[in-house]
Computed example of a mutant assay.
Amino acid sequence: MKCLVPLLLASLALISCKPAGGPASSTATGKPKVALVMKSLANEFFQTMAEGAKKHQSAHAADYELTVNGIKNETDLAEQVGLVDQMVSQGVQAIVIAPADSKALVTVLKRAKAAGVLIINIDNKLDADALKQAGLSVPFVGPDNRAGAKAVAEVLAKKLKAGDEVAIIEGVTTAFNGQQRKAGFEDAMNAGGMKIVTSQSGQWEMEKANGIAAGILAANSNVKALLCANDNMALGAAAAVQSAGKTGQVQIVGFDNIAALKPLLADGRVLATCDQHGDQLAVFGIEAALKVLKGKTTPADQQTPVDVVTK
């Protein structure tokens, strides 16, 4: 037993030399470790985002390691906060995050940055006032959601006439991208002289949007269109229109260009959507993070493409 004592003491000495707190400069392999923290993986858009990120890492396996995770639903803020803390404790060098809420994630991201973690914001922009109040600077890599939504709604405007009644089904009201998409829809509808009779939140979810759309159609018999802030909600709205026997009478537009929407675009149940290239959105953020980590650039905003998609 005595011969084991020096070995135990040596092991303890090695353990005590391990740096405490904050992420290491790289993983044991010498490669930086990047974490992708997304919103709901029940949403096809984020599944596509995750697959795109994994493919990029596989093609650049020598350059970095990747951890991919997301929350159960769009509104589970506590779970997303927990994921950020978990990634910091695991020693990642960068977190690329699509925040579920533009304000609620600022505090935990400030903690992460204080621990030495690089933060890159994608998809849903963090609130500028909340960042300023926290003394936090985080680059946003993502699309102009307002411009994209306006472009989609302009396709719809060509199918309507001034005075026609329309309704908006919003995303989570505290999400910046949801706010911007609503504003884009309003820009195009107001310019075309359409009447927005109501705007309600479907919280990005198909089932909730279905119920809201059904209620809107029942309360507003003259509604000619439903403008949905994502394709999940457009799918729910289309089902409500079909149940109300108004297919072809009520136009629908969405946002995201998910695969599940393509049959509805093909047969005209949905008029248009906006492709923000979900399979590349996380990749844009990851590449921006890697450039900063390698010292080749400083953190900066980067606008990514959006394209209108129709039949």
Rank of each mutant, 00 (worst) to 15 (best):
I212H: 04
K195A: 10
L271H: 11
K161Y: 09
A282S: 11
A134F: 14
S199D: 05
V141L: 06
A98S: 15
V270R: 01
K72M: 14
A98N: 07
N220G: 08
K150N: 13
T273L: 04
E154L: 12
L290K: 10
V309K: 01
N190M: 08
N43I: 03
N190Y: 01
V270M: 03
V172R: 07
E65H: 10
L4N: 05
F185V: 05
Q276G: 09
Q303N: 05
E44W: 08
A266Q: 14
R146Y: 04
S243I: 14
A157W: 01
S243V: 15
A20R: 12
A234T: 06
G52C: 01
G135F: 06
T75A: 07
P6Q: 08
Q80L: 10
A20H: 04
V270D: 02
G285S: 06
A147P: 14
E207M: 07
V108S: 12
F176T: 14
F45L: 03
A213Q: 15
K33Q: 06
G236W: 04
G148W: 06
V81I: 15
A98C: 13
F45D: 00
I120T: 10
V108Y: 12
Q93G: 02
A225Y: 03
P99E: 09
D127F: 06
T173V: 06
V283N: 00
A229I: 09
G248E: 08
D256I: 00
A35F: 00
N43R: 09
K39I: 03
N190H: 03
T48F: 08
